[in-house]
Simulated scan of single mutants.
Amino acid sequence: MQIVNIHNAKANLSRLIDRAAKGEPFIIAKAGKPLVKVVSINQPASAQARRIDFMAGQFSVPDDFDRMGDGQIEQQFDANA
Rank of each mutant, 00 (worst) to 15 (best):
M1I: 06
I3W: 04
I3M: 10
I3T: 14
V4D: 07
V4N: 00
V4P: 02
N5Y: 01
N5S: 11
I6S: 06
I6Y: 12
H7A: 14
H7M: 03
H7S: 13
A9L: 02
A9H: 01
K10A: 06
K10I: 10
K10G: 06
A11Q: 15
N12A: 04
N12R: 05
L13S: 07
L13D: 01
L13W: 14
R15W: 00
R15A: 15
R15P: 00
R15C: 02
R15S: 11
R15E: 14
L16T: 03
I17M: 09
I17Q: 02
D18N: 14
R19I: 00
R19T: 04
A20C: 03
A20P: 01
A20D: 04
A20I: 02
A21W: 01
A21V: 02
K22C: 09
K22E: 15
K22Y: 01
K22F: 05
K22H: 07
G23Y: 06
G23K: 03
E24P: 00
E24I: 01
P25F: 03
F26A: 10
I27A: 06
I27R: 05
I28K: 06
A29D: 11
A29V: 08
A29K: 03
A29N: 04
K30R: 09
A31R: 07
G32P: 05
K33W: 01
K33S: 09
P34T: 07
P34F: 09
V36R: 02
V36N: 03
V36Y: 14
K37G: 07
K37F: 02
V38A: 06
V39N: 02
V39H: 02
V39S: 13
S40L: 03
I41A: 13
I41Y: 02
N42G: 09
N42C: 04
Q43E: 15
P44F: 02
A45C: 01
S46I: 13
S46V: 12
S46C: 07
S46F: 11
S46E: 14
A47N: 09
Q48T: 12
Q48E: 13
A49F: 07
R50I: 13
R51H: 03
R51G: 04
I52P: 01
I52L: 12
F54D: 12
F54H: 10
M55E: 06
M55Y: 10
M55P: 00
A56Q: 06
A56D: 15
A56L: 01
G57S: 05
Q58W: 09
Q58Y: 10
Q58C: 08
F59G: 01
F59W: 11
F59C: 00
S60G: 00
S60E: 14
V61I: 15
P62T: 12
P62N: 06
P62H: 09
D63Q: 07
D64F: 13
D64Y: 10
F65R: 05
D66F: 12
R67I: 06
R67F: 08
R67P: 00
M68V: 09
D70H: 04
D70A: 14
Q72H: 07
I73W: 05
I73C: 00
E74W: 08
E74C: 03
E74I: 10
Q75A: 15
Q76K: 08
Q76R: 13
Q76T: 13
F77L: 15
F77H: 07
F77V: 15
D78E: 15
D78M: 11
D78S: 11
D78Y: 04
A79V: 00
N80E: 15
N80C: 10
A81Q: 08
A81P: 06
A81M: 08
A81F: 02
